[in-house]
């Protein structure tokens, strides 16, 4: 199975996980929970894409 499937993880966070995250409390780092949650999704996207980039054989060529 290709490492590229990992990209589904942040997508699930944004399109499905959001259903459970639409709330103000608890505040995390001063942010309303919804905003903190979406922030985490963005960070997760960056991390996942970095992993995919590092492992994907497509980027090893030349």
């Amino acid at each position: 199975m290709s490492i590229r499937w990992l990209a589904l993880l942040p997508a699930l966070g944004v399109f499905v996980g959001i259903i459970f995250a639409n709330r103000v409390t608890p505040y995390v780092l001063g942010l309303p929970f919804l905003w903190f949650y979406v922030l985490m999704c963005v960070l997760l996207t960056a991390a996942v894409m970095a992993i995919i980039y590092a492992v994907d054989p497509e980027n090893k060529r030349s």
Binding site: P10, A11, L39, C41, V42, T45, A46
Partner: peptide, 20 residues
């Protein structure tokens, strides 16, 4: 207010998609 959070989310999704 809250709905503005979509702006934060869609960019990240677009970049992930751009890879492919």
């Amino acid at each position: 207010g809250g709905p503005a959070v979509y702006i934060l989310a869609y960019g990240a999704m677009a970049y992930a998609l751009s890879y492919f």
